Simulated assay, not measured.
Amino acid sequence: MRRSERKRRKPDLGILAGRLLFAVQDELFDTLARQGHPNLRPQHGAVLAYLDVEGSRATNLARQSGQHKQVVGKLIDELEALGYVERRPDPSDRRAKLVAPTPLGLDQMTRADAILAAIEHRHAQALGADGYAHFKRLLQEVTDRQRAWRS
């Protein structure tokens, strides 16, 4: 049996995780585009998914998303040009900058939360609330264990 055929029939963890990520991103960003946010791309999620309403430091966004600081910096530049975030002084350290959502960014965050809640609700209905909660616990455990590998 060819490798590609075997991977199609019995996908490994990386393939399954990638398929899930891309499918969720596709639905999220397609729906956001229809709701007035057509310029966002899945890559912007490395910033937007971790951005606090009161603002976040770029270094924290990079650490949380697992992206390099340079990548996150480029994404912040793009999101700033699109009007989703702004840089402002960090009140706890005037030398540092916070990346904070603008009103457009807050709208996107609210809509993204609702879209993701609907996706999760749909899966919970299909699998049953207990089954879906169990799946998420196991997925979190596998994710935590895999991330600990680098530590």
Rank of each mutant, 00 (worst) to 15 (best):
residue 57 R to H: 13
residue 144 D to K: 11
residue 88 R to S: 04
residue 115 I to W: 05
residue 50 Y to M: 07
residue 40 L to D: 06
residue 28 L to T: 13
residue 68 H to G: 11
residue 127 L to F: 08
residue 51 L to Y: 09
residue 67 Q to Y: 11
residue 147 R to S: 08
residue 148 A to S: 10
residue 41 R to K: 14
residue 6 R to D: 08
residue 54 E to S: 15
residue 19 R to K: 13
residue 116 L to P: 02
residue 83 G to W: 02
residue 75 L to N: 00
residue 109 M to A: 15
residue 86 E to N: 02
residue 63 R to E: 14
residue 126 A to I: 03
residue 93 D to G: 03
residue 13 L to V: 14
residue 130 D to Q: 12
residue 47 V to M: 03
residue 110 T to R: 15
residue 109 M to C: 06
residue 6 R to S: 13
residue 26 D to L: 09
residue 102 T to N: 07
residue 91 P to K: 07
residue 131 G to E: 01
residue 20 L to R: 14
residue 85 V to M: 01
residue 13 L to C: 08
residue 147 R to G: 02
residue 108 Q to C: 12
residue 8 R to M: 11
residue 111 R to T: 06
residue 69 K to I: 13
residue 27 E to P: 00
residue 50 Y to R: 14
residue 20 L to C: 07
residue 130 D to T: 12
residue 148 A to C: 03
residue 83 G to K: 01
residue 31 T to I: 00
residue 146 Q to F: 10
residue 26 D to I: 03
residue 37 H to Y: 05
residue 139 L to S: 11
residue 61 L to C: 10
residue 65 S to H: 07
residue 116 L to C: 04
residue 53 V to S: 14
residue 88 R to W: 00
residue 65 S to F: 02
residue 92 S to F: 09
residue 92 S to T: 12
residue 136 K to W: 02
residue 26 D to N: 10
residue 37 H to D: 11
residue 119 I to Y: 04
residue 38 P to Y: 06
residue 97 K to P: 00
residue 17 A to N: 11
residue 13 L to R: 15
residue 25 Q to A: 12
